[in-house]
Simulated scan of single mutants.
Amino acid sequence: MFPLKIGYRTIKTAIGAAAAISIAQFVGLNSFASAGILTILCVQSSKKKSLHAAYSRFFACMLAIAFSFVFFETIAYHPVVLGLLLLLFIPVTVRFKISEGIVTSTVIILHLYTSKNITLAIVSNEIALIVIGIGVALLVNLYMPSLDTKLRQYQVEIENNFRTIFQEMVAYLRTNESRWVGEEILETARLLEEAKSLAFRDVQNHFLRAQDYYYHYFKTREKQFEIIERILPMVTSIDLLVNQRYMIADFLEKLTDAIHPGNTAQLYLTRLYELQDQFKEEPLPTTRDEFEARAQLFQLLKELEQYLSIKKSLKVDQLFVKGHNT
């Protein structure tokens, strides 16, 4: 049997629906169960989504009440009229970008349709149901568990994979041999997608935070990973054991030890520029093979320069900076 998993959103939905129905029933509203339906529909995965859902559903419901009065009271309480109402109502909600509230407002429309008489008391009852249902959903959605632990876990796993990949490049540059199967490449691509999705959800839970460290951090790592994917075939295509290979291997080894959340990319950019100057001071190649190998190694340095420049652009929160990191 599959294990039963109950997430925090499920718990909030259950508590919110029960609370909304209890409140609506306590104040003596008709169709009090509809308050629970509204709450269920408005509980979302993030605070911003929940607020947008509440906004859409509230105005869609208000619009539904107005449409119902015009169609049912001026034409007739008839299924054909109900169909005509929906035929016009749905495009209007789409036009005003509140289509998320179509299902909720349809419940209100059906309440008014079955009443056969729209009075101030009935409208007040429906508005009260809307306010209670949406209000309770917003209250329960104020609590969002912190995603920091999970995001940091993704951060650690991605950085570990980066280190492994760099270590394998170092080993190949020094020995021209490798038994690495490259599983970290596929794993890193997957981790980056999952991490970005989770980080975006974290952004949606902060109304006043315009930027989010984790989201930008994972976007930065994604750009760096694209460079790593370009570098790998470049490294493995160099067969000749020229001296510059060992110089780059030494640089990559130091860079590997400095893969952390913080940002001291400028330090390693300076070292890389010094390495480029050393390359230029080396004696000219004597064979075509040596020329091609050194040209590829110089191109490798250019890619590493871009790798470091990307990280340099990341604005790092000082809480995450620990030691010499890139």
Rank of each mutant, 00 (worst) to 15 (best):
3 P>A: 10
16 G>L: 06
17 A>F: 12
18 A>K: 09
19 A>H: 07
20 A>W: 05
22 S>H: 09
24 A>K: 05
24 A>V: 07
25 Q>R: 13
28 G>L: 09
30 N>C: 06
32 F>V: 04
36 G>R: 03
38 L>Y: 08
39 T>R: 06
41 L>A: 08
42 C>I: 10
46 S>C: 02
49 K>Q: 12
50 S>H: 06
51 L>G: 03
51 L>I: 15
55 Y>P: 05
55 Y>T: 10
61 C>V: 10
63 L>M: 13
63 L>N: 10
65 I>Q: 04
68 S>L: 11
71 F>K: 02
75 I>K: 10
80 V>I: 15
83 G>T: 10
88 L>M: 11
94 V>S: 11
95 R>S: 12
96 F>T: 06
98 I>P: 02
100 E>G: 12
100 E>N: 11
106 T>F: 12
107 V>L: 15
108 I>H: 03
113 Y>E: 06
117 N>H: 14
118 I>R: 08
124 S>E: 14
125 N>P: 07
127 I>M: 08
129 L>M: 11
129 L>K: 01
130 I>H: 01
133 G>T: 07
138 L>Y: 04
145 P>A: 11
145 P>G: 09
145 P>M: 08
147 L>K: 07
148 D>K: 14
152 R>D: 10
154 Y>H: 07
158 I>M: 02
158 I>W: 00
166 F>L: 15
168 E>S: 02
168 E>Y: 00
169 M>N: 00
174 R>T: 00
175 T>Q: 03
176 N>V: 07
179 R>D: 13
181 V>R: 10
182 G>A: 10
183 E>I: 12
183 E>A: 12
184 E>T: 03
184 E>A: 08
185 I>F: 15
187 E>K: 14
189 A>Y: 09
189 A>L: 12
194 E>C: 06
197 S>I: 07
199 A>M: 01
200 F>Y: 13
201 R>P: 02
201 R>D: 01
202 D>Y: 06
206 H>T: 05
211 Q>F: 13
214 Y>N: 05
220 T>Y: 02
224 Q>C: 10
225 F>E: 01
226 E>C: 05
228 I>L: 14
231 I>M: 04
235 V>Y: 03
235 V>T: 00
236 T>I: 13
237 S>H: 03
238 I>S: 02
240 L>D: 00
241 L>D: 13
242 V>I: 07
245 R>K: 13
247 M>K: 07
249 A>E: 03
251 F>Q: 02
254 K>H: 12
257 D>N: 11
259 I>T: 02
263 N>H: 05
264 T>Q: 14
267 L>N: 01
275 L>F: 08
280 K>C: 09
282 E>V: 04
283 P>D: 04
284 L>V: 12
285 P>I: 10
287 T>I: 12
287 T>F: 07
287 T>E: 07
289 D>A: 11
290 E>H: 12
291 F>E: 06
292 E>N: 11
293 A>E: 02
295 A>Y: 06
299 Q>P: 09
306 Q>W: 10
306 Q>D: 09
308 L>G: 00
314 L>H: 04
317 D>M: 13
322 K>C: 04
322 K>W: 11
323 G>Y: 01
324 H>L: 15
326 T>M: 09
